[in-house]
Design a protein around this nucleic acid. Structure first.
Lengths: 148, 148
DNA sequence: TATGAAATTCACTCCGT
DNA sequence: ACGGAGTGAATTTCATA
């Protein structure tokens, strides 16, 4: 993991469709060398996968909310994880230190669907309360800057 | 935007490196037809870009926190946005309805860097307080499911 | 680990339907 | 909108240093 790798990661995050030749130009290396470096970054798990970024509103998921979930028992275990993973509107789920047990990020299409989602959250074993933060506008959501 | 497009979006989110021939097989269409559909999804902005998913811990950003930012003035304007965008550790910034004005997602390397980041947040014009939620473990972070 | 070139596969375009 | 074929460009592999 040197500066060349970090430059490659930044370039790939910005546009993963560019050719190895284009990447090679940015780091002054041959295409073969860049190919090998990217292969290793994938192999090591530094690059987890190549994806596309989908506009949420275009697929009927224009409502974003964060929910703090309170519980009467320890929720940092896998049954909880699986219960949350079964809800497709839950984009992220984190075990937290602070005023609640879990923090989940939810994307739905309408306020009614948000209400329905909260109802489902309450049905998860151990959940005793929720505090919902509704997003009015997202300033930005951006990829990780690989520079320390 | 029909079921074929949604299937293509899901497939591309799972692995954007696969060939058009492989995508075509999943939707029982020719490579030419798939190529045209994906081109239109990009053109319409449904697909915003193609990126790589980088493991945060591998680039020295293993500490995740969410911060509720309280303010003494309306913060839903662009000077605020720009001030937050200037902080590379801020991954997301949202204007919210609820107990605070903004919600930001932060990735840093160490608890010390988190402290330094909070100090910088306080220096943003109008900020009067923060409530920090530190993530102990992330259950999952996943892409948008394009099915309604 | 890098280079440069060879071999193979793929993206992209065009045209017919 | 879809299918199929053709062409140029890309990925991928390999020999060499």
């Amino acid at each position: 993991m040197d500066d060349v790798d970090r430059t490659l990661l930044a370039a790939l995050q910005h546009d993963a469709t560019q050719s190895y030749a284009a990447l090679a130009g940015q780091v002054r290396l041959s295409t073969g060398a860049v190919h090998e470096r990217v292969r290793k970054l994938r192999e090591q798990g530094v690059v987890r996968r190549t994806t596309v970024d989908v506009e949420p509103a275009a697929v009927g998921r224009g409502v974003l909310a964060f929910v703090l979930v309170e519980a009467n028992a320890w929720m940092g275990d896998h049954p909880t994880r699986d219960a949350l993973a079964a809800l497709p509107e839950v984009m992220e789920a984190h075990v937290i230190a602070g005023p609640a047990s879990l923090l989940v990020k939810i994307r739905v299409g309408t306020p009614e669907q948000l209400q329905a989602s909260l109802r489902r959250l309450f049905q998860v074993e151990g959940v005793t309360g929720t505090q919902t933060v509704v997003v009015l506008e997202s300033f930005f959501e951006r990829p990780l800057d690989p520079y320390p």
